[in-house]
Design a protein around this nucleic acid. Structure first.
Length: 213
DNA sequence: TCCCAGGCAGGGC
DNA sequence: GCCCTGCATGGG
């Protein structure tokens, strides 16, 4: 199926390079409407000028955070959210970048609802954090994934609907979920931009873009 | 120059 | 529930 075609073509993506789960949380906020390149710069700035721990970000002045993350866009909004979210984790779960007391020994729904209650974390960001920081079996759905499903002929426009569908199709393994989400992003970024019919696209035999040409 | 990136929240309807 | 808008910068 699609997963195998993509994996065969692009190989393992080795996704979400981060030293700690807390770094994944920070990256997840910063990458909203931003390229990963700009996020890397911002993370580097935060590491050298502030420190990538809940306490450091929670106690840093806003204008310092803003300066560090400017490259990712929406920097005032994101700086405020980073500060508040860091403060939340610091106060409730301590200055622990592994975030084990947050992720461990609680139900998936409990953790997800808690993430969603924070300002700046919606469904996609929450699920990315759960999968890539918490190693939970849940698949984030982004605009690319919805677009791809559409082109494959599935009319699934709602988040939950698409998520249930794909989770029922994919092997229920955390590594597969991580890889699949990364592969879809890779595909849409590098291939599906080239519109008419790209001969190198691994989905050329099943994707409607290619069929209609 | 123009467009959009690995979205989210808040409003109107 | 769905659709629109503000949020803002940088790279192709």
């Amino acid at each position: 199926m699609v997963y195998n075609l993509l994996l065969e073509k692009f190989g393992h993506q080795n996704w979400w390079p981060a030293d700690t789960p807390f770094e994944v949380v920070v990256g997840a906020i910063l990458t909203q409407q931003a390229t990963w390149l700009s996020v890397e710069k911002a993370i580097k700035n935060l590491k050298t000028k502030v420190g990538l721990t809940p306490k450091a970000l929670a106690t840093a002045e806003l204008h310092i955070l803003e300066e560090c993350i400017k490259s990712t866009g929406f920097y005032r909004q994101k700086a405020k959210r980073l500060s508040e979210i860091s403060n939340y984790f610091y106060k409730n779960y301590g200055n622990d970048t592994s975030m084990s007391s947050f992720f461990d020994s609680r139900s998936l729904k409990t953790i997800r609802d808690e993430l969603l209650s924070l300002d700046g974390i919606g469904p996609e960001t929450a699920d990315s954090i759960l999968l890539y920081a918490g190693n939970k079996l849940i698949l984030p759905i982004d605009a690319y994934t919805l677009r791809l499903l559409n082109r494959l002929g599935y009319n699934l426009s709602r988040y939950k609907e698409a998520q249930n569908f794909l989770q029922s199709k994919l092997p229920n393994k955390i590594e597969v979920y991580k890889e699949f989400h990364a592969l879809v992003v890779n595909l849409c970024k590098n291939n599906c931009k080239i519109k008419p019919s790209c001969s190198t696209c691994p989905l050329k035999n099943i994707c409607s873009w290619h069929r209609s040409k």
